[in-house]
Design a protein around this nucleic acid. Sequence first.
DNA 1: AAATCAGGGTTGTATGATAACACTACAAGA
DNA 2: TCTTGTAGTGTTATCATACAACCCTGATTT
Lengths: 261, 261
Amino acid sequence: MTLKLDKVNRGPHLSTLVASSISREIAQGRLKAGDQLPTEQALATTFGVSRNVVREAIARLRSEGRIWSQQGRGAFVADATNATVLTIDHETLQRADSFRNLFELRGMLEVQIAALAATRRSDADIVAMEQALDGMRTAPYGSVAWLKNDLGFHRAVAEATQNPYMGQFLVFVSERVRESILAAGNQQKSDDMARTTLGEHERILAAIKAGDAKGASAAMTRHLAGAASRVGLPGGEASAKPASPARHSRLRKAVRGQAAG
Amino acid sequence: MTLKLDKVNRGPHLSTLVASSISREIAQGRLKAGDQLPTEQALATTFGVSRNVVREAIARLRSEGRIWSQQGRGAFVADATNATVLTIDHETLQRADSFRNLFELRGMLEVQIAALAATRRSDADIVAMEQALDGMRTAPYGSVAWLKNDLGFHRAVAEATQNPYMGQFLVFVSERVRESILAAGNQQKSDDMARTTLGEHERILAAIKAGDAKGASAAMTRHLAGAASRVGLPGGEASAKPASPARHSRLRKAVRGQAAG
DNA sequence: AAATCAGGGTTGTATGATAACACTACAAGA
DNA sequence: TCTTGTAGTGTTATCATACAACCCTGATTT
C-alpha cells in the first residue's frame, strides 16, 4: 500500500494569516479605500496574537501598496490603483481556467515581442539566444536544465526588444504558466517533442536574425500553438474561442506536460 | 506669490530601509539563490536596529518571494523565478526612459486586447464602456473624475476579453505609466484635447460593438498614437525606432501631459 | 550499530516600555 | 474674535527581553 501523504500543513506564519485576513476584508469590500483600520492593539486582541505579529502583517500589506500608515494617526486602506505590486496568488493559479488565460496572455506578449525583437536585436542578443538553444540541445527534454534554457531563450528574445519591462513581464507570466502546469499534473516527455520544440525555436531565431518581424511573430505563433497542443490545450492561437465555463472541468485533466516553452 | 511646496519627505520606515538594503544585495548578486542570510540578531546589530525591525523587513521580503525562512534553521535567498509578485519600484519609474518603455508595453497589450474584446464582448461589457464614456463627457479634461473614467473605459475593454488577467495587467501597467507621467512634469489641458480624446474612444467602442477586431485594434493604435503625441512622445506606434540613449535627456522635458489615456 | 537524549543556535511569538507623532480641547494673549 | 501656545490623549514606530518551537549536531545509552 502506497501512502498518500500531503505535505504537513505547517501553518504559515501568523503574520501571513493576519495579512490575508485583512486582505480579504479589503477585497470583499468590507474595508473600503480610505477607511481606517482598527488600531494595532485592537487587531492584536481580536486576532488573538501579539501586536508584533500584527505589525509584520501590516508591513507586508504596506509594501504591497494595499494600505498606508502614518505614525500617530493610524493605518488606512489605500486606493486599489496604488498597488505597487502585481501578484497572482497560489489559490487562483490552482483553478483550471487560470492556465488557459495565462497562456493566452503570454502568447499575446510573446508574439508582439518577437516582432519587436526582430527589428531591434543586437549581436549580443543573438549570441544569448544561440547559447540558450545550445543548452537545450545538450539537455534532456523536460529536465531542469532544458527548462532553464528554454526560459532563457524567451527571455533573450524579450531583452532583444531593448525594453527591460518586456523581459520582466514575460518572465513573470511564463513562471506563472509553468506553476499552473505543475499544479495540474505530471509531465510527459518524448524525443519527438524535443526535436519539434527545438525546430520551432530555431525558426524563431532565424527570423529574428534576418530582421524579419512578420516572420518572427509567425514563427512564435506557430511555436505557441505547438506548445499549447503539447500540453493538451486545443489550439494555441490568440484568436481562439473564449474559454467557456463548461470546458473547465475537462481542462484540468487535459493539461499534462510540464515543458510548455 | 504662490508657494510651491513639495510634500515633506518623511523618511520611510526602518524596516523599509532594511528590506531594500537586503533586496539590493540580492539584486546585485552579493547574495545568490540558496545563500543563507545572516541571523536576525546579526542583521539587527549590523544595521543598528532592533530585531523587530529586521523581522518586519524579512516578512516583507518573504511575501515577495525573494527569501524563505524556516524556524530553527534560518532564512535563505529564494530562486529568482519564485518571486510571486511583479514590482516596479519608484526609483526606476523616475528615470526618463521608463515612461517610453512602459508606454510601449501598454500599447502592445492594449492593441491586442482591443482586437480580442471585439470578438468576445458581452452586452454588459458594452454598457460598462458606454458608462465610462459618459463619465468622461461630463468631467473636465484631466480632472480626477475624467482620469478615473478614462481608466475605467480601458479596463472595461480589457475585461471584455473575458480573461481576468488582461485587466489586471493592463491596469497595473497603466497606473505605472500615469505615475511616470506625474513624475515627469505638470499637465497641460485644452478643450480641443478633450474632444479629440473622446472621439478616439468612441471609435474604439464602435469597432468593438460591431465585432470588428481589426478595426478595434486600428482604432486603439490611433488612440495610443494620439495619447503619445499629447504627452510629447514622438510617434506612439509599436514599430517605432528603439529608444536611443541619446534621446533620454530630452525626453524628460518633453513629457508634459498627465492625461495620456 | 541504532536509538535516545542533551545542548546550542535560530526563528516564531509574546510582553512591556519608550519615543515620535497627530489630533483635540482649552487657556492665554492680541 | 482670532491666533497662538500648551497640555493631554491616542496611535504608530521602535527597542528590549523573554520564552516557545524547531533544527542540527554530537555524545550517550541501549
